[in-house]
């Protein structure tokens, strides 16, 4: 095969970027099962390509709002894994000193304006980040990430119309992984084309294969350019699959037989590795992406585990100015 060395290197970089998220999520799962992390944890295994591709088009001044399934988005925005793990492990080095936890942490210095555990609630807030940009000259683009199920939350429709009516630079990314917790999205809507809701509000919308980094990247780069140029919001429905439960401990009884096996073939890491192999890239280079990521996460976890636990005497700090 004749792929240029540059293209191959870019794709290996993508593979490594996805492996950093996958390795982090697997580490989080292990720590949760050992009960070193406690409470509800939602992993993004299988959805890594969307975060990697979308964030590669963002600039430092852009503001991203994610959900409880947000560890991967944080990594993709550059938040150090050690401080993410420390947050989940209730260490003082955690990004929020233990106040956020797995489902509600933020790191604004990385343009990661937080997970959110209220379904749909991040969308109106993201609209506000774009509203501020109208006055502050920053050129900031706001990104709101949510799931298929969140489309049924009134706040999301309100946010989309608000952004559309005022031409605000918000990119709405709907990660359609087919399920809202334990319920298939198609049982909860009459029109399975979720992007048409955005279209109806006057927002340019596309549906992409979320497992295809280049499709996500193209949609994202057009959306960022459009928002930055003051041409208003856009909507990207990215089809994906989570190859783990909704939360750690989910028995996943709702999955039809064979679904997960099929998903494991198309999920983005397996897919990109296969594509690289077909393109003639050696097994060693492909495997190195995983090994480097796992090493990094292993080191991050050891550091986080060695960090001091949060100090209970600080519990009331930061409540008010």
């Amino acid at each position: 095969m004749s792929e240029s060395p540059v293209a191959v290197n870019d794709r290996l970089r993508d593979l490594h970027a996805m492996w950093r998220i996958r390795a982090l999520e697997e580490k989080v799962r292990d720590l949760r099962l050992e009960e070193l992390i406690v409470g509800s944890v939602h992993l993004s295994n299988g959805q890594e390509s969307i975060a990697v591709a979308a964030c590669s088009e963002l600039r430092p001044q852009d503001a991203l709002y994610a959900t409880y399934r947000g560890h991967g988005w944080a990594v993709a925005r550059g938040v150090p894994p050690r401080n993410i793990l420390a947050e989940l492990l209730a260490r003082s080095t955690g990004v929020n000193g233990g106040r956020g936890g797995s489902a509600h942490f933020s790191a604004p210095e990385f343009g990661f304006h937080g997970e959110n555990s209220i379904v749909g609630a991040g969308a109106p807030t993201a609209v506000g980040a774009a509203l501020a940009a109208r006055y502050d000259g920053s050129g900031r683009v706001a990104v709101s990430v949510f799931g298929d199920g969140a489309m049924n939350q009134g706040a999301v429709t309100e946010a989309m119309n608000f952004a559309a009516a005022f031409g605000l630079g918000v990119i709405f990314i709907c990660e359609n992984n087919r399920y809202s917790e334990l319920t298939p999205i198609n049982d909860m809507v009459a029109n399975p084309d979720l992007s048409q809701r955005a279209t109806a509000l006057g927002i340019p919308a596309v549906r992409v294969d979320g497992n295809d980094l280049s499709q996500v990247r193209t949609a994202m780069s057009l959306s960022v350019a459009s928002a930055a140029a003051g041409r208003g919001p856009s909507f990207i429905e990215a089809h994906t699959q989570r190859i783990v439960g909704h939360y750690i401990g989910d028995a996943e009884q709702y999955r039809p037989a064979g679904e997960l096996d099929a998903d494991m073939i198309v999920e983005p890491i397996a897919r990109l590795a296969r594509e690289l192999e077909t393109a003639g890239v050696g097994r060693h280079a492909i495997d190195r992406c995983e090994a480097r990521a796992r090493d990094e996460i292993e080191r991050a976890a050891s550091q986080a585990l060695a960090d001091p636990l949060v100090d209970p005497s600080t519990a009331k700090e930061h409540l008010y100015a």
Binding site: G98, L309, P312, A315, K316, L319
Partner: peptide, 16 residues
């Protein structure tokens, strides 16, 4: 509750 938001870290929550 000692008038606060509730932190995720169990030892912080237990202090409140």
């Amino acid at each position: 509750l000692n008038d606060s938001r509730i932190p995720s870290a169990p030892q912080l929550a237990a202090a409140l």
